[in-house]
Amino acid sequence: MIRTLMALFLVPVMLVGDINSAHAELPDGGIGEIKTLDAGTFVIRGDARESAALGGIVFQGDEFETDSQGAVGITFIDGSTLSLGSDSYMEIDAFIFVPQDEKLGFAVHFLKGTAMYLSGRIAKLSPEDVKISTPLATIGIRGTRLLIQVAE
């Protein structure tokens, strides 16, 4: 037992890791990956606006815009997925997934167009920390898949 306790002190750093997440070595700060893409999709990150790329890493604060041809699907490291149809705009205002510290949050704002959202572990562990909004409404989640249209 003493040996076991000593071993625990020796390896604490190695034992730290997120539990039950989809998290395959994304670059630092990466919260998800672009898994599907139709040309005509743009990522707005800070002052830069660039065409989105398949396999592109998604970061907190990113905004996504699609034109009349565009569409995009993202899988996040908590296992949630989100997709946009054409002529759509979305802001990922917050994404925090550190379950071992109980730090969780997901805030996304849909300004126009169509979207599908499938909830992941953040919604399972702490549904009140998932905040989905449009200019008119907020949507509270209890583990689910849903569609949103914001017509202009």
Binding site: I139, I141, R142, T144, Q149
Partner: peptide, 25 residues
């Protein structure tokens, strides 16, 4: 006729389960 404003639709998940959402203004 597409209505102005928002439409929010609940779907089932791949395993057939259905969640619950609250839409608020």
């Amino acid at each position: 006729i597409p209505e102005p404003g928002n439409l929010v639709v609940l779907l089932d998940e791949a395993d057939g389960s259905v969640g619950r959402i609250v839409v608020s203004t």
